[in-house]
Amino acid sequence: KSVAVFNQETLQQRLQALIDGARESWTYAIFWQSSYDYPDGSVLGWGDGYYKGEEDKGKGKAKVVTSAAEQAHRKKVLRDLNSLISGSAAGPDDAVDEEVTDTEWFFLVSMTQSFVNGVGLPSQAFFDSTPIWISGADRLSASACERARQGKVFGLQTMVCIPSPNGVVEMGSTELIHRTSDLMNKVKILFNFNNLETS
């Protein structure tokens, strides 16, 4: 418990800075936070996330290739979550009724997930203290980690997990992005909470 005083607001700003300041086009960033309720922080759970979405390259909205039934399901879940958050009964809402893209859905579903004992992409990076960088749909499909395979199914081409002292920064993109040391360094600086927040 002596490690970091966690500040949710600055966590959000850091994730945003990471994505908005990058030359590459990242779709989302998530901070998986190690839990102090378990020995050695063996569980990584949702800390915070920032969803930017896909680049609009003049082709209009992101292509949605899901079935009508799947879209109806996603919209219902979004409506329910919206009313849960706003505290009122579900009513008409133009934004909620827009199609829910694959990457939006992947991001939303991620909020329900956690990773234990080195199993799963973020957890593996955390326990090995080694970044994982997978670029290419084929490589995501061939990964031993279910999260990487799932990412490919929802349209990602690149997934990255970079460990920090208190968790793991995961980033994903629908574009093919090759490994850069620049991103690793940024994560190292932005997510080293031990140095920044103990005061």
Binding site: Q8, W46, D48, G49, L81, N82, I85, V96, M111
Partner: peptide, 29 residues
């Protein structure tokens, strides 16, 4: 509502707000 952990609730709130901004851009006067 109380079953939703705070971190997830905040993230979800932000996600929904930003989605609304993305999909329904403010109309300038």
């Amino acid at each position: 509502d109380e079953d939703l952990p705070l971190a997830r609730k905040r993230s979800l709130q932000r996600f929904l707000e930003r989605r609304k901004e993305r999909l329904i851009p403010a109309v300038p006067y």
